[in-house]
């Protein structure tokens, strides 16, 4: 479904800085993979490349056989709207809209369904993420976890076959973090979308079918069960969040 081929993202010139270096990745329909790595390792940039949010300096992003960046901008917008759901690492609800309006916006912008149906689905999705009672609340009155749930509902409004989550729990406490990931997993099983999770948290990453590690812009598969069993591995490689989960 999604195929990233030799992606490189370079900032600046002579010589410039490669935030992502020659990354290739395949994601099948309904598959769940996670990417871990330190801050500044290029995880978010890679996810932005996969989500058609920034153009690669080199390489291609193929979505269902279509070279995404070969399409004109109007079609790119349609791809973002219909094929990709994106969950950002920062609060990303529009402050002037209620939760249900925020959830309905992608359907209204992309004209993927009638207004009534968009709102009906928005209410349904909010109910599924546990926000039925908070549908008419504005973002400022929602907690961090509730905002993140609303963002998940928004990402799923157009039933995209691909969901990309960029550290969706980075600013949440541990129990809310687990709730959100559990919710995402349940939704993924129910909806069957392909799911790429970028996280600092190795424990959350292990929920995925495949785990990759990003280091200085390069992506490599992580054979988790073996390497993480090695004494001291976690602290050496993931001292940032793993410490709090270490037994």
């Amino acid at each position: 479904m999604l195929s990233a081929q030799s992606l490189t993202k370079r900032y600046g010139v002579n010589p410039g800085y490669d935030a992502v270096r020659d990354v290739s990745l395949e994601l099948q329909a309904g598959e769940f993979i996670s990417i871990i790595g330190r801050s500044g390792s290029g995880k978010s940039t890679l996810l932005a490349l996969l989500g058609a949010l920034t153009r690669p300096t080199e390489g291609r992003v193929m979505l269902d056989g279509t070279d995404v960046w070969a399409r004109p901008e109007a079609e790119l917008a349609a791809i973002r709207s219909r094929h990709i759901g994106f969950i950002f690492q920062f609060p990303s609800l529009l402050a002037s809209l209620t939760a249900v309006d925020n959830v309905a916006v992608p359907a209204l912008l992309g004209r993927t369904m009638e207004v009534e149906r968009a709102y009906q689905r928005a209410y349904d999705l909010l109910a599924r993420v546990g926000l039925a009672e908070r549908a008419d609340a504005y973002p400022e009155s929602l907690s961090g976890g509730e905002q993140r749930r609303a963002v998940i509902a928004r990402a799923l409004i157009n039933s995209p076959p691909l969901l990309l989550a960029d550290e969706p729990t980075s600013d949440l406490d541990e129990s809310t973090e687990t709730e959100i990931i559990t919710l995402l997993e349940e939704l993924q099983r129910a909806e069957g979308f392909g799911f790429i999770l970028v996280t600092h948290n190795l424990q959350l990453a292990t929920h995925a079918q495949r785990v990759y590690e990003m280091r200085q812009g390069a992506l490599a598969p992580l054979d988790l069960p073996d390497v993480t069993a090695e004494p001291g591995y976690r602290q050496r490689h993931f001292p940032f969040r793993i410490l709090s989960h270490a037994p």
Binding site: A77, A78, R80, F86, F88, L94, P106, L109, G110, R154
Partner: peptide, 15 residues
């Protein structure tokens, strides 16, 4: 950022 978010969730340039 707001404009970027709108673009990221499918707003067309003309919108």
């Amino acid at each position: 950022r707001e404009v970027g978010l709108l673009r990221a969730i499918g707003a067309r340039p003309h919108q």
